[in-house]
Computed example of a mutant assay.
Amino acid sequence: MIRLTGAAIGGAAIGASMSTATASFADGEAVQMTADLNGREGPGLHYDVVRTYPAGTEGEIMNGPEESDGHTWWGLHVPSYGEWVWCAGDYLTSDSDGGSPGGCTDQYYTTQNVEDLARVIMSEASISDTPARTAVGFTVPTRMEQQGVSSVRDVWDAYARNQSPTAEITALADDILQCAVADNSDGATHFYSPMSMPKEGDDTSGYDTGGGLEWTEGLDRRNYRPGWALDLERIFVDGVPEREFKFYR
């Protein structure tokens, strides 16, 4: 994860001219803030401040670099706040000992696991865009790691798996199990689709609706949520509409 450091960096307390040498980061790299640091809506001092994060805050590199106002800016996911912001790279340092929960390992990369993971992604998220498909896919090896198993089939009873995958989705499954893409789910192990859950007034037979009703952006009626959603930590995945999927760990 990215950890933020500095004293209100990238904001009113520190001027645009006060730039120091900045590190270079890779997509998905864990970082830490070295001072109290402003997270902004875009890569520059003219963008509004979303929040000032305390030194030591962790994050994950999602975008960048972008040069503006004497700083090199990096787009971060800050999981402890569920926010996506831009921060000045002068005050970020690599968190080599950190990393997202359920950090990727290629120990599960086998032909059978690729085929099985692709079937899960196809069955659960075939109509979604790549961010949702990727996040859904990463929940599988994360569950495998937590349960100490090495086969996708050891955990796939928790997933739909009735559809044969396309070549595109098989390629994504291959990338996930080779760690060729970053885990955008931040270690999520569970998810549900609000638009696929029963809505207020619908028949709820056969569904876990123990989490009660909720309003979800993009839906015109309240949807039910599963009971386990009350006990797990919510994860916000960039680029995934809430009506399609909500992720948890």
Rank of each mutant, 00 (worst) to 15 (best):
N63Q: 11
D90S: 15
G42T: 14
T93K: 14
L92G: 07
H77R: 11
L45I: 09
V50E: 12
S96N: 14
T105A: 08
N38M: 07
D106G: 02
M144R: 04
S123G: 08
P131H: 02
V50N: 04
I61W: 03
G89R: 09
D97M: 04
T34I: 13
M33W: 00
Y81R: 12
C104W: 09
C104M: 08
H71R: 15
S123V: 06
T111M: 01
N63P: 00
W73A: 07
V85N: 07
A88G: 13
I127E: 11
E145F: 05
R51H: 12
R40T: 06
G98D: 11
N38C: 10
V85I: 14
T134N: 05
T34P: 00
D106F: 00
G64S: 08
A125Q: 02
Q32K: 11
T111C: 00
H46C: 01
A55L: 05
E145C: 00
E67M: 11
V114Q: 05
G44Y: 07
D48A: 15
V50S: 06
A55S: 13
P43S: 12
T105K: 04
V78W: 09
P54T: 06
G99P: 10
Q112N: 09
S80Y: 03
S126D: 10
T72P: 02
Y108D: 09
P54K: 10
M144E: 07
Q32C: 03
G39Q: 10
S126A: 15
D97P: 00
I61T: 06
A88W: 03
T130L: 14
T134P: 01
I127T: 10
S94F: 00
A118L: 02
Y91K: 14
W73C: 06
E67L: 11
E41Q: 12
Y47D: 03
A125P: 01
D90Q: 14
A125T: 04
T57A: 10
L45Q: 02
T130A: 13
P79G: 05
M144I: 13
D95G: 02
M122S: 13
N38G: 00
E66K: 11
L92C: 13
D97C: 04
C87P: 01
A135D: 07
Y91W: 13
Q32M: 08
P65Q: 06
N63M: 10
G82T: 05
Y81G: 07
V140I: 14
E83W: 01
R119C: 06
T34Q: 11
L76T: 11
P54F: 00
R133D: 00
A35P: 01
G59T: 03
M33S: 15
S96T: 12
E145N: 05
W73V: 02
R133A: 03
Y109T: 10
E60L: 10
C87H: 06
G103V: 11
V49T: 14
G44K: 08
D97A: 15
D95A: 14
G102F: 12
I127W: 07
G98L: 01
E67K: 15
T110Y: 02
Q32I: 15
G89F: 13
Y109P: 02
